[in-house]
């Protein structure tokens, strides 16, 4: 009885985890099965006819998979770099420098936190269309150059940095930029790491904005590419489709499994911090 009791939580968790993980397993399994086995609904992990190579090759041939991944990497890292470059000095100034309008700016930042990107898409799209910048990497990245969340987060973290050290550094002749990037940011590396994960995951997985500004398949980031691919295959070849899906989810899944702690901290930081 007591043994059953101590096993019960594991049993319930295992049943839940089965449902949660089933799509991942099915995706992987189908991606290595031959198209002929498509009607096989067993969960047996070894396919009769191992056709991983065929499926992945088809996925890569039908659409430029590698190109999607490259686009995704360019966009994600481009966004992240500009976000950090703009948010860190702003957060430092808000936390440690006195200037008129500081309170107002902080209020604006907090207000902007509530505005989802989707609400700004329309005017931004019109602006980019007018400037004839649609179908460019710039169009995909521009709306995310400023992360108010990054400013808010770094502001929180910078505020706890001791003022005495900053004053001592000023007396030692450090420039304000050196203090900001070399001293204060170094004290907030966990926040920086968590924000980077947060930003990379969010933009790798984003579909809404690329769908609006990109029609050229060669510029598509992975989610948009997946959508194109699903339309092209339209249910004809699930093996290849699942191979494509596996390719697109793999980078984030692998990073997650390698740096589990950082990922969970980064993605849920909006709530926990």
């Amino acid at each position: 009885m007591s043994r059953l009791r101590s096993f019960l939580p594991h049993l319930v968790l295992a049943a839940g985890a089965f449902v949660v993980l089933l799509p991942f397993y099915w995706m992987f399994l189908t991606s290595i099965r031959s198209p002929a086995e498509i009607f096989d609904v067993s969960l047996w992990p070894i396919p009769k006819d191992f056709s991983a190579g065929e499926n992945f090759e088809r996925a890569a041939r039908q659409v430029p998979m590698a190109r999607f991944m490259l686009n995704g990497a360019i966009v994600c890292f481009g966004i992240l770099a500009v976000q950090i470059l703009t948010a860190v000095p702003a957060a430092y100034a808000l936390a440690k420098l006195k200037f008129p309008g500081r309170k107002l700016l902080l209020t604006l930042v907090i207000a902007a936190l509530c505005v989802p990107m989707q609400a700004l898409a329309l005017p931004l799209f019109v602006g980019l269309a007018r400037a004839e910048l649609l179908n460019t990497y710039f169009a995909m990245m521009a709306p995310f150059f400023l992360s108010v969340f990054a400013i808010f987060l770094f502001h929180q973290s910078f505020r706890s940095y001791p003022d005495e050290i900053i004053e001592a550094a000023r007396m030692d002749g450090f420039s304000e930029m050196e203090i900001c990037w070399g001293l204060v940011l170094r004290g907030s590396l966990p926040s920086l790491a968590a924000f980077s994960v947060f930003s990379l995951v969010a933009h790798w997985n984003d579909l809404y904005w690329p769908m609006i500004v990109v029609t050229d398949i060669n510029l598509a980031p992975p989610p948009l590419g997946m959508l194109f691919f699903a339309d092209v295959e339209s249910g004809a070849n699930y093996g290849a489709l699942m191979a494509g899906a596996a390719l697109i989810t793999a980078p984030m899944l692998v990073c997650f499994l390698l740096a589990r702690r950082h990922f969970i901290a980064g993605i849920t930081m909006t709530g926990v911090k």
Binding site: L21, F24, M27, W204, P223, L241, A245, C255
Partner: peptide
């Protein structure tokens, strides 16, 4: 795991 996965791909699955 589903939180990190690309939803577009997983929706296809």
């Amino acid at each position: 795991l589903p939180v990190t996965a690309t939803l577009v791909a997983m929706a296809t699955v």
